[in-house]
Design a protein around this nucleic acid. Sequence first.
DNA 1: ATTGCATAGTGTTTATTTTACACTAAGTTA
DNA 2: TAACTTAGTGTAAAATAAACACTATGCAAT
Lengths: 229, 229
Amino acid sequence: MKYSYQYPHPSVTVDCVVFTVQNNFLKLMLIQRGAEPFIGEWALPGGFVRIDESIESAASRELKEETGIENIYLEQLYTFGKVDRDPRERVISVAYYALVSSEEQIIAADTDAASAKWFPVDELPRLAFDHKYIIETAYRRLQGKLSYQPIGFELLPPKFALSQLQSLYEIILNKKLDKRNFRKKIQKTGLLADTNETQKGVSHRAAKLYTFNKEKYDILAKNGYYFEI
Amino acid sequence: MKYSYQYPHPSVTVDCVVFTVQNNFLKLMLIQRGAEPFIGEWALPGGFVRIDESIESAASRELKEETGIENIYLEQLYTFGKVDRDPRERVISVAYYALVSSEEQIIAADTDAASAKWFPVDELPRLAFDHKYIIETAYRRLQGKLSYQPIGFELLPPKFALSQLQSLYEIILNKKLDKRNFRKKIQKTGLLADTNETQKGVSHRAAKLYTFNKEKYDILAKNGYYFEI
DNA sequence: ATTGCATAGTGTTTATTTTACACTAAGTTA
DNA sequence: TAACTTAGTGTAAAATAAACACTATGCAAT
């Protein structure tokens, strides 16, 4: 007990809600707790913010330590601070959400497979702490954000077909979209760059592959541009 | 030094960015610091989160203590956690933003007038900590949110004229709007309820006064409705 | 009482955006 | 070569947004 203060201090943690799309399902990463409280139950990857690291660094670090995922789009979601959200002591948690592409998922396998797992968002197990509530908040935010910021690209491999992108939108927004209208709208943004490649190994007509023109988006975003689907 | 921990704990504070519209200016409330660090400099109202109160309660409490403002729309903005943002020790700050109507401003006068003051957003003094950055974040959020959520009503007295509402939008979004189109759009939402009153004490034709139908908005919002200007 | 002044209040036309909708093209497999 | 699967494409109708200017009302000054 080396650290003393005149007034009680809360602990500050981070929790990460990491989404991906796999086999036409929106999934998120959970880990099985190896310590009390809630030992054995599923929870969001996360942990304590160290005294000498920023909150965001803590989120990246914990995510990497617990799931092997790194170098991803990570955005602050909300800070949860109900007095009794942790049974041990006062804990304030800054939640982040993140998107990883189905390709990067494979990297995640280098962690202990027993303790980190992808769950479809509507087949979640019982969750520790208030993590169910945090996930609901993140899911709502993801749906909202998807419609006006091109974060959907983060969930796809660098080169993707338009049908993959559409399918991703349909999965997250949970509704069918019109193929022609979707394509028109996406093309009109000018954010897609044509690679001159096509899909490989598919048993039907191969689709053209595109990449997301992030440089162009950054320029547009700076001048108050809003992407809208 | 009665509170000891095995690991160092950060302090957690709240900071409030309180906006109002006064004389056709968007203003925000600052207080003059009476203690180190940054003594004498201007800063956002705020303070430490107590161990037995939620973050949001802390924000409300601090705001009331330091400015006299209470019972207002208060929304979490962002959590700022750079390691060196406070020269004394590690402090993580959860920022909130709030809107008060020009009527409620008068209540704020019951605080020490020397230490709490409204500043136009583009005539801010030098600010303590990273509060300039927090304010920029809040201002951007306010502009964004105003366009798709009817928070503008919070900045007006309960009964208001359409021209007041339009003026408020023009001030915050910093651009002129077309009177007829604005009125059409606002009316079409069905969120305005006609009081059968008119302005008093104006030296020209008196405008009809409206109230904001919050019940109706809440119902619409629940079903995924988005207000848009 | 009349005039001037300031703000309130009101519709229509045009341009733009969104929606609805169905067939042909290309590649793979049996 | 026929059958299957997904890729890729355009147009018309409807809805929404944008541009635009005058009359109405109430008060104040003379």
